[in-house]
């Protein structure tokens, strides 16, 4: 049994389904990316796992328990999100002290060292922080609590590129030191490529795909060439005309032999970045923007 399991989960708001019949297990002791366009249901899914919201239908299980208002789930799962609230009159140092009391594995040294590295003074009050600094504080806490399951919803919102990069590095080092189940929702998949072991792509509240990052990178290839008679029409994920003669295709990886064949027929073959692939896969469901005009 996986630590986090969803079985046929549906969540509706006013008859609008945000999550539709979703069944999946989050891989244990792994860093999993939750990817998808805005409105795909990423935050709703995390809220359901965290027990902040109740499912409309189906079952969520965290360590074998239903997470809604469950104390043992609350002690073993930490959820970093944008609307984290801290007591109004607390300084960061007092926030850390409070977490230390609640979470037995709280790493005070890591929290203090990361704060210093990211230029957060422990004397500051969370309510006085900028958006980027608040995200940084939340992210530090998410790393320092060291709960068996830790979820980050768009943790890098408002962070500079340099801070984001350092946060990813800190997350990796923290994971190497204490392997645990980490779920990271983001729309910046290109920045997370090397960090993630698994990828879950959601679209319209449904599971578009779930696979290992390495598989996702091999899932499709891009072709540039003239004739499309050699291309299996069923395998086309995206196509675009480059000029009068040349066309660009993204197709499902057809196997090395076929690729060699295509290369011999003059096609230029290149890899498809996972972030682009996710856009192509979700765009297939709605058509690209050119169709609007």
């Amino acid at each position: 049994m996986a630590e986090v399991e969803l079985s046929d989960v549906t969540k509706s708001y006013r008859n609008q389904e945000a999550i539709s019949s979703l069944t999946l297990n989050i891989p244990d002791q792994s860093i999993t990316g939750l990817i998808g366009p805005n409105g795909a249901g990423k935050t709703t899914l995390l809220n359901l796992i965290a027990g902040i919201e109740a499912v409309t239908d189906g079952e969520v299980s965290v360590f074998g328990n239903e997470p809604l208002e469950n104390l043992s789930v609350a002690a073993n799962l930490f959820y970093v999100h944008e609307d984290m609230m801290y007591p109004q009159d607390f300084r960061i140092s007092e926030v850390y002290q409070a977490f230390k009391k609640i979470y037995p594995n709280w790493d005070q040294a890591l929290a203090e060292n990361l704060s210093e590295h990211f230029n957060l003074s422990l004397k500051q009050m969370p309510r006085d922080l900028s958006k980027g600094q608040a995200s940084t504080l939340n992210a530090i806490i998410g790393l320092a609590v060291q709960t068996p399951v830790t979820m980050f919803d768009e943790p890098t919102t408002g962070m500079d590129y340099g801070v984001r990069r350092d946060f990813y590095r800190a997350l990796l080092k923290s994971y190497i030191a204490h392997p645990r189940t980490i779920i990271l929702s983001s729309h910046l998949l290109n920045e997370l490529e090397d960090l993630l072991e698994h990828v879950i792509l959601l679209d319209h509240g449904e599971l578009e795909l779930m696979m290992e990052m390495d598989e996702l990178k091999q899932y499709a290839v891009a072709l540039v060439g003239e004739y499309d008679s050699l291309i299996d029409q069923q395998s086309i994920l995206y196509q675009d005309r480059l000029d009068l003669n040349q066309q660009y295709w993204v197709i499902k990886h057809p196997g090395e032999t076929t690729l060699q064949d295509l290369r011999r027929h003059g096609f230029t073959i290149s890899p498809v970045a996972p972030s682009d692939l996710c856009v192509y896969l979700t765009q297939m469901n709605r058509g690209d923007v050119d169709h609007v005009f």
Partner: peptide
């Protein structure tokens, strides 16, 4: 695999492969 993960800044599972 953990040394390689640190060195190349990649997921340890990838390094393990």
């Amino acid at each position: 695999q953990y040394q390689l993960a640190e060195l190349f800044n990649i997921n340890p599972a990838t390094a393990g492969k």
